[in-house]
Design a protein around this nucleic acid. Structure first.
Lengths: 233, 233
DNA sequence: ACCTGAACACCGTTCAAGT
DNA sequence: ACCTGAACACCGTTCAAGT
């Protein structure tokens, strides 16, 4: 057919934008390991090699994903000015939990973020905003600096997960596990026994969101105390 | 030569032990990315495929590395019994800093640990020990549970590094960077200016060990406070 | 029982060739 | 200017063949 392809799909041209959008979708739906240049090409109905016309290489794709995700974070937290220093704690708390919601939508994001060799500019922007809250909250520059380190990845809404989020289990099952475990791991066994027997205790087994907020509040409270101590001197 | 190889090196036979020792050395010296089945074979003067007679696959090698590293950690921290509950804080602190020393000797360890899909038994053993200290310190099972989550990877002596440890810089250089940065990142710029001008402030620029201990103490202090509050009820 | 060589199915990426 | 096909240099791993 020498006719111009009237019947064919418009097949909008490739672009960095489209490549990144496809990459995001792929990572969200199939995980970051499923994202290869070849699979990404397939998703776009194109050979893998065509992608190199729009992105330098795979690292550039990952950099782009970080930009997109951090963009979502920055959008979710754009309230910056405190009307009073006292607002520091609740505002910071809200901001970090908002960042966390974005991270939970893109579970691969922490891993990709961690794999960057240069600090992405979007991350700098976010950290600058977080630091701004501390300065407005009347932290000294020095204490604010330490605070940023103390937050670590928690400031972005995630923690290093030492073990995968387990599937939900009925309290009974956990109780049985406790029995089994008690032999090799006496303290874990004992803890599990108590935690699962008290009904009024934190529900069932590890609730990641609860634990995240627990750790976050521990740090926020500690920092506030240090700030107040520093003010008196 | 039909003679038996008297002159050749004894060439002690391969074994899981030897494979792991070579892997450890390779990872320590050249980084974890340089550890491939082929490079590991080369190190041992053998084809990559021979390794499969002694380890199931590459994942098994990484599992083995975790065992070795956590073994070093467990060795470094075998003091367990507290003579009094009050000892909880200093002993826990020492234990975690001892674990950190091992991690600093094997910089790839956090990444490998994080990549395990099952919780390694050696890790469980370590966590059980840490939990034991908390229980001896008269934490309730529930609070001890939350505390373990709050520690996260810090309990093992490392934090998620959002940016690589920069090379040491003279204070002047940092000062210049601050000027440059102030445009795009006003809060970071301001912080840097102050931090680098105060001579009596925390030395120079980010001291990782200092920041780690700062964050650790923040958590330990917070936990102790919660424990004492819980005791009164 | 252990080691090897060739091969397979995947990567990311280069490059000359097509349109 | 953009896309493609063949190819290269790497992975981890399988398997039949050697000793």
């Amino acid at each position: 057919m020498s006719q111009p392809d009237l019947a064919e799909k418009p097949r909008l041209p490739l672009s960095r934008e489209r490549v990144l959008r496809a990459a995001l979708e792929l990572a969200d739906e199939q995980g970051i390991d499923a994202l290869t240049m070849r699979s990404l090409g397939r998703e776009l109905g194109v050979e893998a090699m065509s992608l190199y016309n729009h992105v330098a290489n795979k690292e550039a794709v990952l950099d782009g994903l970080v930009e997109v995700v951090m963009g979502e974070v920055l959008e979710a937290v754009d309230d910056v000015r405190l009307s009073s220093p006292a607002e520091w704690k609740p505002v910071t708390r809200r901001r970090i939990l908002a960042a966390r919601e974005v991270m939970l939508r893109h579970r691969w994001a922490p891993k990709v973020l961690e794999s960057r060799t240069e600090i992405p500019a979007v991350l700098m922007r976010y950290l600058d905003g977080l630091l701004g809250l501390m300065l407005q909250g009347e932290f000294s520059a020095d204490l604010a600096h330490h605070a940023m380190h103390a937050f670590g990845s928690r400031g972005l809404g995630f923690t290093q997960e030492l073990f995968e989020e387990d599937t939900e289990m009925p309290a009974e099952t956990v109780g049985m596990m406790a029995e089994q475990m008690a032999g090799e791991y006496p303290n874990l066994g004992e803890m599990l026994k108590v935690v699962t027997h008290d009904a009024d205790t934190t529900l069932g087994w590890c609730d990641d969101q609860f634990e995240f907020e627990f750790g976050l509040d521990l740090i926020l409270d500690g920092l506030e105390r240090l700030r107040d101590a520093q003010r008196l001197t």
